[in-house]
Write a protein that binds this DNA or RNA. Structure first.
Length: 492
RNA sequence: GGCAUCGUGGCCGAGUGGCUAGGCACAGCUCUGCAAAAGCUUGUACAGCGGUUCGAAUCCGCUCGAUGCCUCCA
């Protein structure tokens, strides 16, 4: 029996604004799409939080035993920097500034993106399609929308007719907007604007002569509109209706709203059962923006080369910090908060090491099954990782109590306890073992054990000068000795 | 200006009508040769003002503030 049959997962659906019991279209299988990055510069931290949130979602679904097809795209076709017809796209602009080919820009920042996500221990998606690899499909869907009368062509560009669409469907249902309000609120169209109405969005844009990224189409040379690629790639790999669509809060409108409109206009079907939106990351209480300097790149955090934080923090600590907040809450990053997260993370990891050597008794006086279910309940409640972590710290407390003989654990209980702790910490939360990087662990361990032995002999002889010298020397190397009832252990 | 989300103890961050969140920091105690580690104990917080209710951090209204969207953006 798969775990998902025992657990009832609820997901907060942005479309209905409430938590709903998750039921996949095909029993045992989940299709999930997440909007990926536009690869025209280095990924920034907020981006990473969104992808990390959905990595956690992906991991928990896998943990529950679902077969998940997880699609996350790469936006490598240039999209205009503003709404004006004459605008330059972001990738071409970067190419011009760096004096390289647009595809070189794409390659460079795709590699950077993958590197950073790997450091954060994100699982790669099942499929990572690119927009430029799906130009043909995008042209095909534009034809369908034109045929069904929800788009119009103007001077080699094709626009989606929002007002016409809204007569039959509901444009704005995801973001809670009314088209009338939006019309009342928008500026007059400029004379040279090709759109019938300012809410209309481009499905295809004619390429100006200087535009480098361009493809032939029935409407002349041009490039696809931004919202289209997600519609095309999600339906191609997941079907016309699929289970979960995720992305950052800021994509809710207009991007996701337009995706719904495109799908409904093409297939007369709502594309997504559960819409999930991850919330923003702020820095010292303010939005991150390059222009104000209130900005941090992941590498600047790892290296410590920045003016905002007091020290470098490893990726695993950042990940733990982010997992301590719910994905739908705004999370504020600060030096103080990271410092606290790092200590908590270390305590958790140290306890996990100690867990290997817990004494086993003939009986157990801990309610492990109840505790395990509370861990699942937390995750089942819209992926509440902070509550899960609270329960894991209860586990940490037990580990210490068992070591000191104040609680007991039988053999079966030990296995259940270990599997549960490790399952949640490593598989679900995606934490990495603290000592994964050290190569010569065994040699080091031998050397430290020898020193511990020498120190304890000195202590027995009341030669505290020697014992303290050993302790202080190890301490300055970053090795901390911990004297317990059962002997001395250490942590790095 | 419009729409949306949110405002919790020294800091971070769950909770969403009555019952312990958790982490970090602080203090006391236990342990220790001394420390560290670990354990135990203590903190009565929910932006402000009104209202609903037997009872509200939790529901309603207003005010203030933050963030997001309305234009490319995770």
């Amino acid at each position: 029996m798969a775990l998902y049959e025992e657990q009832t997962l609820k997901i907060y659906n942005s479309l209905s604004s409430q938590k709903e019991v998750f039921q996949p279209i095909h029993e045992g299988h989940v299709g999930m799409y997440v909007c990926g990055p536009t690869v025209y510069s280095k990924v920034h931290l907020g981006n990473c939080r969104t992808f990390m949130s959905f990595d956690m979602v992906y991991r928990y679904l896998l943990h529950l035993g679902y077969k998940v097809r997880f699609v996350r795209n790469i936006t490598d076709a240039g999209h205009l920097e503003d709404d004006a017809d004459q605008g330059e796209d972001k990738i071409s602009k970067r190419a011009r500034l760096e004096k390289i080919e647009p595809m070189e820009v794409v390659q460079r920042y795709t590699v950077d993106f993958h590197n950073i996500l790997r450091k954060f221990n994100l699982l790669p998606p099942s499929i990572e399609p690119t927009a430029t690899g799906h130009i043909v499909e995008q042209i095909e869907i534009i034809k369908i929308i034109l045929d069904r009368g929800y788009a119009y062509e103007k001077n080699g560009s094709v626009y989606f007719d929002v007002q016409k669409f809204n007569k039959v469907y509901h444009y704005g249902k995801l973001s809670g907007r009314k088209l009338e309000d939006m019309i009342a609120n928008t500026r007059e169209l400029t004379a040279q604007d090709e759109k019938k109405n300012s809410q209309d969005f481009a499905l295809w844009k004619r390429a100006e002569p200087q535009h480098i990224m361009r493809w032939p189409s029935p409407w002349g040379e041009g490039f696809p509109g931004w919202h289209l690629e997600c519609t095309v790639m999600s339906t191609k790999y997941l079907g016309e209706t699929f289970d979960i669509h995720g992305g950052g809060m800021d994509l809710k409108f207009p991007h996701h709203e337009c995706e719904i409109a495109q799908s409904e206009a093409s297939y007369d079907k709502s594309p997504v059962r559960y819409w999930m939106h991850a919330n923003m990351l702020t820095l010292n209480g303010k939005k991150m923006a390059k222009s104000t300097g209130n900005n941090l790149l992941p590498d600047e955090i790892f290296s410590g080369e920045n003016k905002i934080l007091s020290k470098p923090y490893p990726p695993s600590v950042i990940r733990f910090f982010m997992m301590q907040a719910h994905y739908t809450s705004i999370l504020d990053l600060s030096d103080e908060a990271l410092l606290a997260a790092e200590k908590g993370y270390t305590r958790l990891m140290d306890a996990l090491d100690l867990m290997e050597h817990l004494p086993v008794s003939s009986s157990s006086d801990l309610d492990l099954k109840g505790w395990r279910q509370r861990c699942y309940d937390a995750m089942n409640d819209d992926f509440n990782s902070p509550v899960l972590i609270a329960h894991l710290f209860e586990g940490v407390k037990w580990i210490h109590l068992i070591r000191e003989g104040k609680q007991t654990l039988d053999a079966g209980g030990k296995t259940l306890f270990q599997d549960t702790m490790k399952g949640f910490v490593f598989d679900v939360l995606g934490m990495e073992s603290a000592h994964a990087e050290s190569v010569d662990t065994e040699k080091l361990d031998g050397a430290v054990q020898l020193l511990i032995k020498m120190r304890n002999k000195a202590r027995a002889d009341k030669d505290y000068a020697t014992s303290d010298e050993i302790r202080d020397a190890l301490s300055s190397l970053g090795i901390q000795l911990k004297d317990g009832k059962e002997g001395t252990t250490y942590s790095l």
